[in-house]
Structures are given as structure tokens and as C-alpha cells.
């Protein structure tokens, strides 16, 4: 991995951190934050591998004691909390989005991007986050869905669209995904 790739990874970890300074809306245990927007962007701009590592790096920064989650939470405590599953699902979400984006790179547009972001950024996150919420909080799956998935559908769908619109624009003016791949193939 080139130093430039490390810089991209660090940049997106920082972007997710700064998105956490935007105010979050608390509904029940799981807050609506702009940070999942950063997760979607990491996957759709950097691709699977670097997107995954960027989000993982962000979680490492949180774990070593920086108050980077929205509402200033941080430290190891958050990985023991009810929302731990959502946090662990983020790198996987970025990977899935990045993988799909790379696959369909030549045909990428806002509609495809939206679909990938919904699949990776919503389906994957709910699939992992909701069962963990249910387990940690001793809730039934139905109750966990009611407090940890359904309220987020409109906000997350909006974020999926916004991330796709930005990624499409970046793809046209400063594509990150295709160039390094060519460089690797040439070596």
C-alpha cells in the first residue's frame, strides 16, 4: 500500500470524525448521525480495501480514547454499549459499498451509487447492528428493529442519495478508484 493510499485512508477517517461534530438527532438508543454518510463516502470514493481500512482506522481512533463519535462519545466504552454492533458493521458496510462500486465503476452514476449505498450502508448495517442491539439490551428482535432500524430509514436513504451524488461528482473530476488499480497491475 502506497503512502498516498495511507493518506487517503487517514483523510476519510478524519472526515468521518469531523462529520461527528454535526449535531446528531437522538431517537432512542441509536442516534441519527452524519457519520454514516462518511462511511458511505469512504466506500464509494476509495473502493473496498481502502474504504474498509479508513473506517477501521476511525474506529481505532475512537477506541484509543478520542471523543470522535457524535455527541462526543469515545473511548472503549462505546464498544461495550448498545450501539457497538452498528460501529462494527461500519467497516464491512464500506467494504461492500466499495466492492460494488469497483465492480460497476465504468457504469457508475447516482442511481447505481444510491443502490450500492442502500445495500451496503443500510442493509449491512441493520443486519449487524440490530441483532447486537437486541443481544446487549435483552430486547426481542422485533423491539430492536423498532428502536434500531425503522426510525432511520428516511434519514439513511437521504444519506445514501447524498453520498451517491457526491461520489458521482468526485468520480468525474478526481477518480481515486481506477488509477491505483492500473498502477498495481503495471507493477
Amino acid at each position: 500500500m502506497k503512502t498516498r493510499d495511507l493518506a487517503y485512508i487517514a483523510l476519510f477517517a478524519a472526515i468521518i470524525a469531523v462529520l461527528g461534530t454535526l449535531p446528531a438527532i437522538n431517537i432512542g438508543p441509536v442516534p441519527v448521525t452524519a457519520q454514516t454518510l462518511g462511511v458511505m463516502l469512504a466506500g464509494s470514493v476509495l473502493g473496498a480495501r481502502r474504504g474498509f481500512l479508513a473506517v477501521l482506522l476511525f474506529l481505532v481512533l475512537v477506541a484509543i480514547g478520542l471523543p470522535l463519535l457524535s455527541s462526543g462519545a469515545g473511548g472503549l466504552s462505546v464498544f461495550a454499549g448498545a450501539t457497538a454492533g452498528y460501529l462494527f458493521s461500519w467497516p464491512i458496510a464500506a467494504f461492500v459499498i466499495g466492492w460494488l462500486t469497483e465492480r460497476f465503476w465504468s457504469r457508475y452514476n447516482v442511481a447505481w451509487g444510491f443502490a450500492f449505498n442502500v445495500l451496503g450502508g443500510m442493509v449491512v448495517i441493520y443486519l449487524i447492528g440490530v441483532p447486537v442491539l437486541a443481544a446487549v439490551a435483552n430486547l426481542s428482535l422485533r423491539e430492536a428493529l423498532a428502536s434500531g432500524a425503522w426510525p432511520f430509514l428516511p434519514g439513511d436513504a437521504a444519506k445514501a442519495f447524498i453520498a451517491a451524488a457526491i461520489a458521482d461528482q468526485v468520480r468525474r473530476s478526481y477518480p481515486i478508484i481506477e488509477r491505483p488499480q492500473r498502477a498495481v497491475a503495471a507493477r
Binding site: 485512508i9 487517514a10 482506522l57 481505532v60 481512533l61
Partner: peptide, 12 residues
């Protein structure tokens, strides 16, 4: 990479 991210956060 951790050091870079720590530096980028205040810049951003």
C-alpha cells in the same frame, strides 16, 4: 496512518 488522521482532523 494514525498520526496522519490525528493531524487531518483539526485541519478539516
Amino acid at each position: 496512518v494514525i498520526a496522519m488522521a490525528l493531524r487531518f482532523i483539526p485541519v478539516l
